[in-house]
Design a protein around this nucleic acid. Structure first.
Lengths: 153, 153
DNA sequence: CTACGTGCAAATGGTTTGCACATAC
DNA sequence: GTATGTGCAAACCATTTGCACGTAG
């Protein structure tokens, strides 16, 4: 189990060094706990898991470290990330999905029936009854690709 | 059966009647404003638009009415809806998407390369440079389909 | 008439932040 | 030694809710 940890630890350390950040006991503990099991989780669950292992790490540190893990590419935010809800018309408009520009925030709508078909197929295979879905691709729009290198964080 | 489109107002009234709810001036104003333009928006923007048209409607009513418009099928929540972020491993795991059960919350992961391919195609057509994407299908999982759904709201 | 709706202000609750102290490097 | 990190509590902020009053049907 520990041998599996090594690669993630190395990856994280690499990231920290590249950002001139430190590898603290708190970050080590969080990293370990996060990769101790392969499951979806949220910040509070992580806090509980850590408490159960006698690690007393504050929520603030957990949130700050999770952000680092996402930035380093070790974790992904599956749900949400947005602070508030956005709405769009449904009635009288064909179903569509979205390309969202990470730089200027522009939203491009697109329709691709073949993707819809494949989704139905996936649901059938998994004996899942779909009620709605959301496909969102983040990236850079045509205008922003040119100035891509500006303002990287 | 009907080929011509019923107005949004009619659709909303239908829904309200079916739920024994009332068609108030506030709901009428919000409905009008929401469909005055075809754009993505959030609650606060709607409030501002209404204020600009001299409609003084409280935030509470706006949120309550938006919920009704979503339930009636006139609007769709494009982004978020979730209260808190969920995370999953990235490093060492193949990219996958999710089936999320609306009843028990179970998350089923799936991989469908053909969908990924089509996404790339969509990006190419729109001259969009993808950095990440998120496909999430909401519905009922196998176990929950049996138990059906009683308390729909 | 009366069940439903509204505005207001206060509550919620996940997440973020200011600050003083602690520590990795 | 110093730039970073941490814990704590308070702040944030979109959204929800309790309550007393208003009103559509």
């Amino acid at each position: 189990m520990v041998s599996e940890m090594v690669s993630e630890t190395e990856k994280f350390k690499e990231y920290l060094v590249s950002r001139k950040l430190k590898f603290t006991p708190e970050r080590q503990a969080i990293l370990y706990q996060v990769f101790a099991t392969h499951k979806h989780f949220e910040a509070d669950e992580l806090l509980v898991d850590l408490r159960n292992n006698d690690m007393k790490i504050s929520k603030a540190t957990i949130y700050r470290t999770l952000a680092l893990l996402v930035e380093s590419g070790l974790l992904r935010e599956v749900i949400s990330g947005e602070r508030h809800a956005h709405y769009e018309h449904v009635y009288g408009h064909e179903h569509h999905d979205h390309l969202v520009c990470n730089k200027c925030g522009k939203i491009i709508e697109f329709v691709e029936q073949r993707i819809e078909k494949l989704q139905d197929e996936v649901c059938r295979v998994n004996k899942f009854k779909p009620e709605s879905h959301r496909l969102q691709i983040q990236g850079l729009c045509e205008d922003c690709i040119e100035t891509e290198w500006v303002g990287q964080k």
